[in-house]
Design a protein around this nucleic acid. Structure first.
Lengths: 327, 327
DNA sequence: TCTAATGCGGACAGAAAGTGACCGGATGCC
DNA sequence: GGCATCCGGTCACTTTCTGTCCGCATTAGA
């Protein structure tokens, strides 16, 4: 039963797993005549998937970019890799694509067999970063750990309009049990927040993800309350009292612009020439520590001067500490 | 023609896009009778995809984890998000899953419509990190830019056994035109290398990805030469003459262990107590700069002393520079 | 306890499709 | 030119698909 549908999927899967197939190989795998294979190929083409065929000896079929994205037929391993990629993508907070990333993540998390889920968790725990690795974020503090699994779960609930219960520990350390209608996940300054309608308090509330625990999906659906995208973001930002508070400074380096740019590569793209022998490197970050780090990349032996009160003050203190530390 | 196959895919797509659907909604969307819908659901179940149904009022269907991964039916946006996630995953070099990540990446790159490809590139250029962000790697230098697109292309060629031509600039700056049979991509120390059979030199060669340019996929297939996984890795490592060269140091901080751990969080997991008032923080990284960065996270006002000649020497110089810079 | 809403699946008959065999043709590599 | 490969028309046969009709099972809520 349904031989043709599943065979079509299998054909797609074969084509995705290996770029080139001859008709013979395919008919062998699928157990059909060549004529039927050609008809299957035709069908797939009609669905908009680009299958190119090459005639002559060494001919065959290959899947190419078509007009639309074909269904991705993944092996378990690949599924795991994708889920991992999306999780780290989501927790890293790629600007401008959070929503889509979450929706893709929700899609795959929804159908992930438990065995694979366990593998993902195992792998994820291996990927923790070390000191000096990617773990420092723009704010210059170690990024708070974001629970990617929680993120996935919440994303699903938001998408599907499913009530949730969980424990929440507020800023003052007070714990409480909440019953909410999740509305949207919003990333602010590398942290994730859940905007939801609190059923007990009869109002919108914002929850920081790392303070949520013991989530229980009730499976009870609800009709999402109307709220514009902007409203949502504004509510969260207000609740979070988030200010950007970025710190700026400028470094005057005793080096021709070209040389510094050469040395810094991509990070030196904003360096400007001051005169033949000096250049200016504008810096911006969310903490003085992050700025100071940047200074360490000025080549050894090269003199520089910083402009910017916060950074200067910080450097003064660090210089003292460094000197003491090696005494 | 093929109404049922495409309808089945559409059903799967609907189920993936939204968790809960009533039979009515589905029949409306698909334009078939309820009986047929039930049969479609049955078919999907037979294929191993977990569709749960709920009877009674507020009943309906939902897609759940089944025994296998169902074909992922993605919107364009989601496809972009996944490709981005995989690219960053691959270039970040997740240990232990490189191969699978590449295979998943190859799968999606293979079928990515050009329009989406352009979107990915656009987005990717926006996600470049700023100073102090995740762009510093373990070696303490800005991570060399890995061209994710190149990586995807090479992954495809390795998988499919397709000959390549490209230009290669070796360490000494010498350029040459190569014609190779790509065999495997190997990440070493945050850099990617291509192991391939060089057809002109009649031997294996290792190419650093960031030195490869002007790649031309010939579309000519070849029979991959036999080589074990270990052999491959060994060849690359030998070619790369990779040594770990990590630098170690220890910091004695005038703070009780508990307080420092509290302050550092995850990064302080190896801190040891020395006595009531002091603790020792062992550090390890691939450059002194990275070590020095770690020091900045010791709370302001707290005194510390470093043990380790390289770091001490480096700090001495930095202290001087900082002092000069603010003069 | 009753009722309305929802999903379940057997039976049937007509419509639609899928299938393999056969064939002459086109294309590309050597 | 010779060979290997893909192309797509036609035909007869088989299988599947589909909608309709129906009584049943399950659930939430009045």
């Amino acid at each position: 039963m349904a031989a043709t549908t599943s065979r079509t999927l299998e054909l797609l899967s074969l084509l995705q797993s290996h770029r080139h197939w001859s008709a013979r190989e395919l008919t062998g795998r699928l157990g059909v005549s060549e004529r039927t294979l050609r008809r299957d190929v035709e069908r797939l083409r009609e669905l908009g998937y680009g299958i190119e065929s090459v005639r002559g000896s060494a001919g065959g079929y290959r899947l190419e970019a078509g007009t639309g994205l074909p269904p991705l037929l993944l092996t378990d391993d690949e599924g795991v890799a994708i889920a991992l990629g999306l999780r780290s993508q989501a927790t890293a907070g790629l600007r401008g694509a959070e929503h889509t990333t979450l929706s893709a993540l929700a899609k795959i998390e929804q159908v992930l067999p438990p065995a694979l889920r366990r593998r993902i968790e195992a792998l994820q725990s291996h990927t923790a970063v070390g000191v000096g690795a990617g773990g420092w974020n723009r704010s210059g503090r170690p990024a708070p750990e974001v629970d990617a699994e929680l993120l996935g779960l919440l994303a699903l609930s938001c998408r599907d309009g499913e009530r949730l219960r969980f424990k929440y520990t507020d800023a003052s350390g007070q714990g409480s049990a909440r019953s909410v209608e999740p509305y949207r996940l919003v990333p602010v300054a590398r942290r994730w927040y859940l905007l939801a309608w609190d059923r007990d308090r009869d109002d919108w509330r914002t929850f920081r993800l790392d303070r949520i625990s013991d989530v229980f999906p009730t499976r009870v659906r609800f009709e999402p309350r109307a709220l514009t995208e902007e409203d949502a973001r504004e509510r969260v930002e207000r609740a979070v009292r988030y200010r950007r508070r970025s710190i700026e400074a400028r470094v005057i380096v005793e080096l021709p612009r070209a040389e510094l740019v050469e040395h810094l590569g991509w990070y030196g793209r904003e360096v400007q020439a001051v005169d033949e022998a000096h250049c200016a490197w504008p810096l911006e970050a969310e903490s003085v520590e992050a700025l100071a780090m940047a200074l360490m990349w000025i080549p050894p032996g090269v003199r520089y001067r910083v402009e910017g009160p916060e950074l200067a003050e910080f450097l003064g203190r660090q210089a003292e500490r460094f000197a003491q530390a090696t005494a």
